[in-house]
Amino acid sequence: MTSTLNTLDTPAAVIELPRMMRNIARMQDRMDALGVAFRPHVKTTKCAAVVQAQRDAGARGITVSTLKEAEQFFAGGVVDILYAVGIAPHRLPHALELRRRGCDLTIITDSVASAREIVAFGRAHDEAFPVLVEVDTDGHRSGLHPEGDELLQVAMVLHEGGMRLKGVMTHAGSSYELNTPDALRAMAEQERAGCVMAAERLRAAGLPCPVVSVGSTPTALSATHLEGVTEVRAGVYVFFDLVMHNVGVCAMDDIALSVVTTVIGHQPEKGWVIVDAGWMAMSRDRGTSRQQRDFQYGQVCGLDGAPLAGYLMVGANQEHGIVAREDGIDGDIVARFPIGSRLRILPNHACATGAQFEKYEALSADGDTQAWPRFHGW
């Protein structure tokens, strides 16, 4: 059953399909030109229809952040899956179950203690888990230093313990903190060089390392070459968002996800429009507050998706959003945004906003929408 933006119940998470397909083609074309496989991170969307579009464009395998994602996409026919979060011991039985059912699931680790847990469980169940060792190339989060002793120790524990040491992976999450082409290119090279160095050290020690996996949306779109890399991972590029706009890797009209909301009231003396999308719809993510341009809870657009310059969602309660001019009170606010009129809000962080909804409304070029389910949880 199809609807339109005027007939949807609100708030609604809307994917503008022409934009999404353009984003998918842009990334896949870039990876093809750089000569690497592309393994999209599907945590952004958790949606089978979106992932199918990525696979149709040429993606090879997927990256997930939860084993529930692995379950859902394996059930939908995706076999080659990387679970790109350090494996907790209590999740090894679930990983084993997926592999025994035919899923080619790869797990990751970044410590000797975790590697030993994988080996002990694998040996006890006669399973040679495929494992990547996570490398820290930017001090952002997890991983081992590419020049550190522990990198070799972890790899040795896995290899000598009978697991299938597949290689190394890294994620330059600090790229989200940058905003110039030169800085992004430098971070992309830092990510590449650090991961390749780790791979070379494993090989020099006589250890297998067929996979060298790197990626984030900003570095994937900024790398000038990827010598020594076998695959790239990126996720939010499929929708983009205001954080990525501030980073400088997308234009406003590349952002494919928005929230449609209805005007339900006014506070004229404050210059406020009250809408039915609060933080339960937009999320509490204020990622742009740390960047050069703060979009508060989101950029306000007309129902046609065109940004309304100067208007932001400036506040949010659970089910109420506050729309206002960012530079003062608009005396015509009531007439400009009458009760029952509809707006679209571009999100700070597409992953967080998408996670608030059980489905997307996929908006085609002809103005019709179709419900695309997504899933939640771990």
Rank of each mutant, 00 (worst) to 15 (best):
L144W: 06
K166R: 13
E200F: 06
R141A: 09
T170Y: 09
L178C: 01
V212Q: 00
E191Y: 11
E177R: 11
Y176H: 12
E200S: 12
T170C: 15
R185D: 02
E160Y: 00
C195M: 09
M169N: 00
M197A: 03
A199W: 00
A155Y: 06
V154W: 10
L165A: 02
L202S: 11
V157E: 14
A186V: 09
V157G: 03
G143I: 07
L151N: 05
M197R: 01
V211M: 06
G194Y: 04
P210Y: 08
A188I: 11
G161C: 08
E177A: 11
A183L: 05
E200R: 07
V196N: 00
R192D: 08
M187D: 04
M169F: 05
P146H: 15
C209L: 06
R201P: 02
L151A: 10
M163N: 03
R141N: 05
G173F: 12
R141H: 06
Q153D: 14
E150M: 13
G167E: 04
R185P: 00
R203P: 07
P210D: 09
E177Y: 12
L184K: 03
T180M: 07
A204Q: 11
P146Y: 11
L184P: 01
P208K: 14
V211Q: 06
L152N: 00
A183G: 07
S174C: 12
H145K: 13
Q153R: 06
P208L: 14
G143K: 02
E147I: 15
P146A: 12
A155T: 10
Q190G: 04
T180R: 00
G161S: 09
P146I: 13
G148S: 14
A155L: 05
M187Y: 01
M163C: 11
G162E: 03
V211G: 01
H159F: 11
S142V: 14
R164T: 15
S213K: 05
T170Q: 06
N179M: 03
D149P: 04
P146S: 15
E150R: 09
K166W: 02
V157P: 00
R185T: 04
M187P: 01
L144Y: 07
R192H: 08
A199R: 02
G148H: 10
A205K: 09
T170N: 13
E191T: 14
G148K: 03
N179W: 02
A198G: 03
D182G: 05
G194L: 07
H159R: 04
V168C: 08
E150N: 06
A155F: 05
V168M: 07
S174K: 13
M187A: 12
A183N: 01
R141E: 09
G143T: 12
A188T: 10
C195H: 04
M197V: 09
L207F: 08
Q153W: 05
A204D: 10
A188Q: 06
P146C: 15
H171N: 14
M197F: 13
M197W: 04
P146G: 12
D149I: 13
L144T: 11
G161N: 00
L165G: 05
A204N: 08
R164G: 03
L152C: 07
G167I: 13
C209N: 07
D149V: 15
E147Q: 09
G161D: 02
G194F: 02
L152M: 12
R203E: 13
P210E: 10
R203N: 09
V168D: 01
M169S: 11
